[in-house]
Nucleic acid binder design. Structure first.
Lengths: 179, 179
DNA sequence: GGCACTTGTTTGCGCCCGCAACTATTGTAG
DNA sequence: CTACAATAGTTGCGGGCGCAAACAAGTGCC
């Protein structure tokens, strides 16, 4: 419980001993509430991904595979340019190529050249892929509820929604600015 | 914005068309608030890890390396059994072995056999490792504040703290029960 | 004390994925 | 029209990491 604070104060004390300035550049160290939030978040995300992965593996999918199917299913024509799909998944171009390789092997996704631009390949959800998504989605949602959403109060859910919406927007703005 | 809902309703409609039952097994689909929270969270964690990784790379560290140094620094004697360290990091035994390989090569961490149990190796923070942590920590905290904590209200910080504390506790209890 | 059983760590293998290099188009000047 | 830049995608390479097997060492039971 207070290990998080010990952690920070340990390094902080060391920093204090070596630094001539009284505190960090401009923002300062995390206060107890901030530290609790950050540590709980950091300690949760990895195991949370792991349990979701374990649950979805029942359908022969990885978390990443599932996310591909979801993104394609969101499109009216069930297809998406590789680069757009990569951006939505936060994946590098090469990473997306390999991931699609696996899905294409299993006939869950197809590749087709775009008629508009001969550079682009479209990833297209196959009927099999859509059927598998439809089958897996309720179980996935159930898994999310059991391990995450279902543990929270309405107030916490709303706060997480507004908080991470801001975080996501800031990250998107930052990477847009970098381009 | 409403893509999250479209996403879910798309798959949900497909499921409805194929299922004879009126809804998911017992819990049901995510309502709008829950969906916003889940999607914002899922869309944030990967890019958030990426920016933190980019910031910490200034010190020649990966996020995972940094976490090793932190966990060791939390211990009074700056050492930890491999298996305990692996558990704290959510890493498999083999994963931890390789990660330590890198840190040992850079003299940030040392290995020493435990005097109590000749099976166990202790990972020990070297003076260089501790010095690097002390140097990097304020910048890391600043990065966390700029990309995450600093964007949130006090209410959101408290809610995230209590929410993920519960999530983490449930995940730990679950994996303890599995052993 | 000996023999099974558990625990702690490392290694072989394979998968995932990012980076840099390369190819194929398309867009833009001149 | 041609040359150069920008964009889309794939491939070679290397690093990170999980799983299963191997091995070492401790524990329990007779």
């Amino acid at each position: 419980m207070c290990a998080q604070l010990l952690r920070s104060t340990t390094a902080y004390a060391g920093h204090m001993a070596r630094s001539s300035k009284p505190a960090a550049p401009e923002t300062g160290w995390l206060d107890p509430d901030e530290m609790v939030a950050w540590r709980a978040y950091i300690d949760s995300i990895t195991p949370l991904q792991h349990v979701l992965e374990a649950d979805i593996s029942e359908f022969g999918l990885t978390n990443g595979d599932y996310e591909v199917l979801v993104r394609l299913s969101e499109q009216p024509d069930h297809r998406l340019r590789m680069c757009d799909l990569a951006a939505r998944l936060g994946l590098s171009p090469s990473g997306l190529t390999r991931r699609l390789d696996g899905l294409v092997r299993n006939d869950l996704v197809g590749r087709e050249p775009s008629p508009d631009d001969r550079r682009v390949m479209l990833a297209v959800l196959t009927p099999e892929g859509y059927a598998l998504l439809v089958e897996a989605a309720p179980h996935h949602v159930d898994s999310v509820r059991r391990h995450f959403i279902g543990l929270l109060t309405r107030r916490e859910i709303e706060a997480i929604g507004s908080a991470f919406t801001k975080v996501r927007a800031a990250l998107l703005a930052e990477q847009d600015a970098a381009s």
